[in-house]
Write a protein that binds this DNA or RNA. Structure first.
Lengths: 248, 248
DNA sequence: AGCGAGGTTTGATCTGCGTCAAGGCAAGGA
DNA sequence: TCCTTGCCTTGACGCAGATCAAACCTCGCT
């Protein structure tokens, strides 16, 4: 853990603690200086909307701390979350002027943003930024496709188990955790947000969480704090293969 | 239409008729020559598997003619299609050695492939290939997210209408068609493949197609050939906003 | 302490789609 | 010509999850 923090600090891009996983991961000092010119921070409180779908969006950026979501809404109000943005995830698309989705802060967040125009110009001059962005986009595409399997074919119980497993995994890797038993963390989403992510109603989410608790697949302290006594058991409930389904 | 064919031929990459939309879209003559060195064709018959998930994959490439699918399978056999590959769509991921999904030909197909290693090297030397690949990947990501909305929130009827609309649209743009009424085309998928795409069973697919036919949203000649008397009506049934939901 | 709001849980009931089962249709092979 | 095979359609029935409804818990505010 101490090691991990040390790594964070020695690799910052200006003062972003996420540089080693972000778009500027492979930039040298000169390039970081150049990015610094067009960089600024934005912060939002839990519940605030960062951008609305269809609005002009003149920046791109990464989440530094906190959690945001990407959602799509139909005219009659049905909502589907299409992305969960955890620290170091990238938002915005070079070459597009308007946001395609609603971006909402579900906890207080800080984002490290670059003005879009100069960022695009720099991308053209600095191929490895584009390459890094391609890698990140391909990872996102894989995540989206894993989610399609979940939405199309998994049962409500499997959906909940999958979501808990994913948050546990991301949380563990963010905290540099190893192989210890009894993983523990907070659910950063309301029941309603989970429902929007999983293609369920909030009542079904609540019932299935209760059921998993009753069956000792998860334990809960209060409504948000989760402990996982046996990660393999959880992954089995999620219907994933043992390694969690992701090729690296 | 004649114009369109002329355009195809004057832009070929070697003899790929899809060059203007493929990864080599912005290559100059020297670069095309270089690609030519590492290029070869593969063809498969309807029903054949191109690669199995987890198998080593030493090439990347584009579909030239025909239609292929990307599917994911759970251990108990539940299947979800996660991508539909139409002519000009790209397959394979630079930087990964094994396929993450099953790739299957649903019609006879021809693919234009590049050996992966030299392609990756050329990508490093030729930034605009990577940029083009990024554009294509971002488009795929948008398509995947639109599909997440469909899988998570649409009814069976809306799912079928959406699928028909998407095939109609892709087909129309491939054939350079304009704004004429009464769009007509073949469904390139079996009922079972549609079910795998839509997160339904084949019986439900069949029933909903019958229902849309009964309600004159679509007309059918035989089991595969479709005519759409009123595209706006179809899009309404699909639950999309008028323009089809996609920002460009 | 009392109150209200947002989030959560739980119960009762309904329904869209899955499951199981039986046939239909067209093409190809003997 | 008949039989097989693959694909599609239709019907009957059941269930997982949606919908409607009520109440609870935990804050923060007055």
């Amino acid at each position: 853990m101490d090691m991990a923090m040390a790594t964070f600090n020695s690799h910052d891009c200006g003062d972003c603690p996420i540089r080693h996983r972000a778009v500027c991961a492979r930039c040298d000092d000169r390039e970081l200086d150049e990015l610094e010119q067009i960089k600024y921070y934005r912060s939002y409180e839990a519940g605030q909307t960062v951008v609305w779908s269809g609005d002009p969006m003149d920046f791109v950026g990464s989440v530094v701390t906190g959690i945001a979501t990407l959602t799509q809404t139909m005219e009659d109000g049905r909502r589907q979350m299409v992305g969960l943005l955890l620290p170091s995830d990238f938002v915005g698309r070079p070459g597009r002027e308007r946001a395609a989705y609603d971006v909402t802060a579900t906890t207080d967040i800080v984002m490290c943003c670059f003005r879009k125009k100069p960022f695009e110009e720099m991308m053209l001059r600095t191929p490895h930024i584009g390459q890094r962005l391609l890698e990140m986009t391909l990872d996102e595409l894989d995540a989206a496709r894993e989610w399609m399997l979940l939405l199309g074919r998994k049962t409500a119980r499997e959906k909940i188990a999958s979501l808990v497993a994913i948050i546990a995994k991301r949380d563990a890797s963010a905290n540099g955790a190893g192989r210890e038993r009894a993983v523990t963390f907070d659910l950063p989403l309301t029941r309603e947000a989970m429902a929007d992510y999983l293609g369920l109603t909030l009542e079904t989410v609540s019932r299935q969480i209760s059921a998993l608790r009753r069956d000792h697949v998860i334990e809960m302290q209060g409504k948000r704090h989760v402990t996982i006594p046996d990660m393999d058991r959880l992954l089995e409930e999620a219907g994933d293969d043992a390694d969690g389904g992701m090729l690296v």
